[in-house]
Simulated scan of single mutants.
Amino acid sequence: MSAASNESASEATASPGPIIHPKRIRWGGIIFFKVEETVFEAPRYRFAKHSEVFETMFHLPAGSDGTAEGQDEEHPILLEGYKAVHFNSLLKVLYPTPEDFISGTLQLEKEEWIGVLNLSTRWSMKKIREHAISELSKASLNPMEKIVLGRDHKVAKWFREGLTELVSENPIRPLAELKAQLGAEMACSLLWIRDQTQTILEPGLTLTGLSLGMIGCYYCQAGMFQTGSNCVSCSRTIAVDDCSAICMFGGSCDMYIHAENPATGPATATVCINLQSLMCRGCSKCAFSLENRTCPSCSRAIGYRAFKLRLGKSVIKNSSASQKILEEFGEEIARYESWDE
């Protein structure tokens, strides 16, 4: 054998090259669905992978004529009671496009994610449901949306947050809107909770421990007093941090309780007041005038109920709204929490 032949044999032994083994990659075949008036054609494998509902459905025996539902366009699986637009949104999540992979993001609109959440909840697609909740949590959901979506799709976090935010809104939404979106029973319950966690300062009672630095604009919530001021009645100087110079005497005071929250801090109360109800402790007369008074930050004219006070835990007398919500809706919240266990 020549040297060249020996060299070739040696190379062949050391580097045999890739060995290709025949393999069949199973995608599970194509399945046909009909939702409303639209027929959808898609690979079946991810439906079975993410949902026991479909895994069971795909193993049902064929009919008496030997035809299995979903095997062709003439015999699709009928999904009654669902929306075609929601099903199309789910397909975008189950089978993202190459562009989605390249960009690293799956761009769906808010309503599309709601459709994905709806179907993934109804068909027990846990991972897809969790992702839809995560994406929708990044959107700006108002309190009413949190309540409705939380109740419809068993999302305890949204449901509880929406209830708490709604009873703390000022001003409260019109009764007709509450009844139309939440139903008369829930609307009445929320108005009752709001009433129980709102304090009206009765005539003859005094709220003390206030300072000018605690007063903020009703509209932009910026501080109204950056420096001290003089009483309009006796000209006494009132320092911005003096908690003994002024008090609020009777009349117009609506107090809204904010429960202790890890994100926002200790429990507080927001008190909407009339500036003219603040009394000077030196002369026991009105300390301020509304004449030509505007917010130094947003320039809004100041009128009745134009200020907010953020008061500490020591002045909070009522139980928090969160506690009342748990008393009224605790069982329902617990049921929704069980969906994410």
Rank of each mutant, 00 (worst) to 15 (best):
K179C: 12
E112Q: 07
V85T: 13
V167N: 08
I172W: 13
S137I: 05
C188V: 15
E109Q: 04
L163R: 12
G115D: 03
A180Y: 13
T121W: 12
E109K: 03
T121K: 14
F54L: 02
R122E: 14
E185N: 12
L163H: 12
N170P: 01
K126N: 07
N170R: 08
G115K: 07
L60D: 01
L106T: 00
E112W: 04
V148P: 07
E145W: 10
C188A: 15
S189G: 15
F101N: 04
L182F: 09
G115M: 04
S89D: 06
V53L: 01
L117H: 01
L178W: 12
T164Y: 09
M186T: 12
M57A: 05
F159L: 15
K83Y: 14
E130M: 14
L163D: 14
A68S: 09
E69L: 10
E165M: 08
G66S: 00
G162R: 07
E74V: 01
T164M: 03
S64H: 02
L91F: 06
A184P: 03
L108Y: 02
I128R: 05
I102C: 10
G162H: 07
G183W: 03
T56V: 00
S168V: 03
R160I: 10
V116H: 07
T121Y: 10
F58C: 00
W123Y: 08
G70S: 04
E161V: 11
L106R: 00
A139T: 12
P98L: 06
Q107C: 06
A139W: 11
S103Y: 10
L106Q: 04
D65C: 02
N142T: 09
V155A: 13
Y95M: 06
S137L: 03
K154Y: 15
D100N: 14
F58R: 00
G162V: 08
T67N: 08
P96F: 02
P98D: 11
I147L: 13
E130F: 09
A187W: 15
L117Q: 04
L108N: 03
I172P: 15
